[in-house]
Amino acid sequence: MSESGLPCVEGLFSAEDGVATLHGSKCTGCNTPYFPRSEACHNPDCTGSNIVDFDFGGSGTLWSYSVADFPPPPPHKFDKPFAPYAIGVVDMECGLRLIGQMVDKAEDVKVDAKVELVIDTLYHEDDVAYSSWKFKQI
């Protein structure tokens, strides 16, 4: 699963010892988490916008999902031939509703399922595997 390679975008996430960590930020004034990092707090009722780094991972509940039955337009990259995949929207325990590809086959995905964050290969380029965060049903 966690084939070592390069992240598809630098600085957003990392995988150590098979554990997926996403690098976001959090406002200490109102405790709101953000991913990717936000430079300011978006909460209009928060008077003390103070953003600090916030790493998260772990699990959540699948709020809903869709299926990419056709390849998305660039700048998406994928290994050919294109294989349809599911895209999950997950209510994470850290308080973020997060989007990501599902590792599970589309026909196996169920709304309300418990899922965990993993780092998995997204595509290959010049024999290098590029990875992203994904969800896996527990």
């Binding site: 598809c8 990717p36 869709s66 895209i87 990501g100 590809q101 997204l122």
Partner: peptide, 26 residues
């Protein structure tokens, strides 16, 4: 990497209708 649409397509790959089908599925 500062463009949210770039991140969404590169890191996930969400064709336009996927936004709507997520809502429909829910």
């Amino acid at each position: 990497a500062t463009d949210p649409e770039f991140l969404r397509q590169r890191c996930i790959g969400m064709p336009g209708p996927s936004f709507w089908s997520t809502l429909a599925r829910r």
